[in-house]
Design a protein around this nucleic acid. Sequence first.
DNA 1: ATGACGAAATTGTTTCGA
Length: 262
Amino acid sequence: MKIATWNVNSLKVRLPQVLDWLAASETDVLCLQELKLTDENFPLQAFVDAGYHACWSGQKTYNGVAIISREPGRDVIKNIPGYEDSQQRVISATLPDGAGGEMRVICAYCPNGQSLESDKYVYKLAWYAALQRWLKSELARYPQLALLGDYNIAPADEDVHNPEKWADQVLVSVPERQAFQDLLGLGLSDAFRLFEQPEKSFSWWDYRQFGFRRNAGLRIDHILLTQALVERCVASEIDKGPRGNEQPSDHAPVWARLVAGA
DNA sequence: ATGACGAAATTGTTTCGA
């Protein structure tokens, strides 16, 4: 089965592209971020017509996340339990794992942080600490768990088109990279790095100054897997195709393929 | 140093993203 994540930067604008990509990529589970719409405006019928179920958590103007899946999700939870947050950034569901069992899927739109001097940076690190805390208990419950989303962290210099220029900026700073490493410390692995990848592989490119054409990007969208899923993961890639669409999102989808037996 | 692009909430311009 194929699981994927895509920050669509407005589901209202990007819905046709999402439907096209779902069909073309044969994705079974798609985590979406930056819906930028309220719950009542979620286009459920379009996904139902395409043969999918959905759960979502939206708000006006900003944020918003959804899980689109061929099978309905169980035990859907919004946000990080125990962490008070008016911003809708997380949704989780239990889904069939494609091998007769179940897997926990967490879809996350992690805060951007804006700059190291910003209150939003303080919020970002506090948010990651809350995620870390909560994941510990989730991992105890769910051996097969995948955390997919826009992390707003480029984990290493190889994930940055121009590391010298980006040094110590938001998205690459030492505390942010430590927060990412702390997640790996829980026993999670970066699916993309399980495999040999082209140099200069990115998942986001700035709209400005022909960022995509110049491949001036960052790899900030990730799929983290528990060991049980790592053993079933046979491929992971970034699909740059949709970034070349007319009126594209500034992010590209990232996917991982899981097979039934290890 | 600033703005550059795109989306949303609004209808001229600001806020925010990464």
